[in-house]
C-alpha cells in the first residue's frame, strides 16, 4: 500500500514537473540577467522599466516599433469583456428558450447546436474572412468579437440549457401563476438560480477572448488594434528579434495576471464542468 502511494506521488510529481518548471522559467526570465536552466545568474529589474511608459524600444533605435503596451492591454480587455458579456446574454436567452419553450423545430435546433458545438470553427477562417470583409468588419475589434461570440455560442447555449434544466419548473410556474410575464419570470426567478452557469459562461468567454490569437492574427491589420497575443507573438519571432527575452517575459507575465486570478478563484468551477471546453 505504502509503495503504491509512493509510486503514485512520484509519477504525479515527475509528469507535472515540466508545467511547473515552464512557469517558473517565465518568472525568472523576467528578473534575471541570464539563466542557466532555472538558476538565475544576476538579478535585474530593468526588464520592468518599460512599464513606466509602455513603449518597447529596440536598443539602438528611435521608433517604438511595437504599439504601446497599455493600448494593447486596453484592447485585450475590451475584446475579452465584450465577448464574455455578449456570450452570457445571448446564451442565457437562447438556453432558456431551449430549456423551457416547446416550439416547432426545437429538437432540430438542439441537434444543430450540438453539431456546431463539436464543429471546429477554425476551419472556416477563409469564409469568415470573406464575410467580415463583405460586412466591412475586417480590421476591427468588432469583427473579431462577433466571430468569437458566434463560434463560442453553441457551447454557451449548452451550458446554460443544462443549468436551466436543473431549475425546478414549479418555481417558475408559481411566478407565472402570480401574473409575472415570461420575460419577468426569466429575469427575476430563473436567472438568480443559474448564477453558477452564468459565471461559467462568463469565465469561458473572458478567457477565450483574452487568449484569442488566430482570429486577431488573421482579421486585424492595424497595430492599433493588436491584442496581447499579437504583441507576445511579435516579440517572440522575427528577423530582427533583438528584444531582450526578459522584456518579452515581462509582457507575458502581465498577460498571465488575469488568467492566474481567474485560475485561483475559478478552477473549482472549471474542474466541475461536465461538458468541458473544446479545444485541442
Amino acid at each position: 500500500m505504502k509503495v503504491g502511494r509512493i509510486i503514485t506521488y512520484t509519477f504525479l510529481i515527475l509528469i507535472t514537473m515540466p508545467i511547473i518548471l515552464l512557469y517558473v522559467l517565465l518568472f525568472l526570465q523576467s528578473i534575471s540577467t541570464r539563466l542557466d536552466g532555472i538558476i538565475p545568474r544576476g538579478f535585474t529589474l530593468s526588464n520592468w522599466e518599460f512599464l513606466s511608459t509602455g513603449d518597447i524600444i529596440i536598443p539602438g533605435t528611435t521608433f517604438s516599433y511595437y504599439p504601446n503596451l497599455y493600448l494593447v492591454l486596453g484592447n485585450t480587455f475590451l475584446l475579452a469583456i465584450l465577448i464574455a458579456l455578449l456570450e452570457v446574454v445571448f446564451s442565457s436567452l437562447a438556453g432558456y428558450a431551449l430549456s423551457r419553450y416547446r416550439f416547432r423545430g426545437r429538437s432540430k435546433l438542439l441537434t444543430l447546436t450540438i453539431i456546431l458545438h463539436a464543429f471546429p470553427g477554425i476551419t472556416l477562417l477563409i469564409a469568415l474572412f470573406y464575410v467580415l470583409n463583405a460586412l466591412k468588419l475586417y480590421n476591427t475589434l468588432t469583427g473579431v468579437i462577433i466571430v468569437k461570440v458566434a463560434l463560442d455560442l453553441p457551447l454557451g447555449i449548452w451550458i446554460m440549457k443544462g443549468f436551466f434544466d436543473s431549475v425546478p419548473w414549479d418555481i417558475e410556474m408559481s411566478a407565472l401563476v402570480d401574473g409575472t410575464t415570461r420575460l419577468g419570470a426569466w429575469w427575476r426567478v430563473i436567472m438568480p438560480n443559474v448564477r453558477n452557469g452564468l459565471m461559467a459562461v462568463l469565465i469561458f468567454g473572458f478567457l477565450s477572448g483574452w487568449s484569442e490569437f488566430i482570429y486577431v492574427l488573421t482579421f486585424i491589420a492595424s497595430q492599433d488594434y493588436w491584442t496581447l497575443s499579437m504583441l507576445v507573438y511579435a516579440l517572440t519571432t522575427g528577423e530582427y528579434s533583438y528584444i531582450n527575452p526578459g522584456v518579452t517575459a515581462t509582457v507575458a507575465i502581465i498577460y498571465m495576471i488575469p488568467v492566474v486570478i481567474f485560475f485561483l478563484f475559478a478552477q473549482k468551477y472549471l474542474l466541475r464542468i461536465q461538458i468541458a471546453a473544446k479545444g485541442v
Binding site: 474572412f129 466591412k136 480590421n139 491589420a221 511579435a234 517572440t236 519571432t237
Partner: peptide, 21 residues
C-alpha cells in the same frame, strides 16, 4: 517591423483594401 513578414504585410494590405482601410 517584425513580426510582420512580407507575406503578412501584403495580406494586411489586400484585406484592408477590401475593407476600404
Amino acid at each position: 517591423v517584425r513580426p510582420v513578414e512580407w507575406g503578412e504585410y501584403k495580406n494586411n494590405f489586400y484585406l484592408a483594401y477590401q475593407a476600404g482601410e
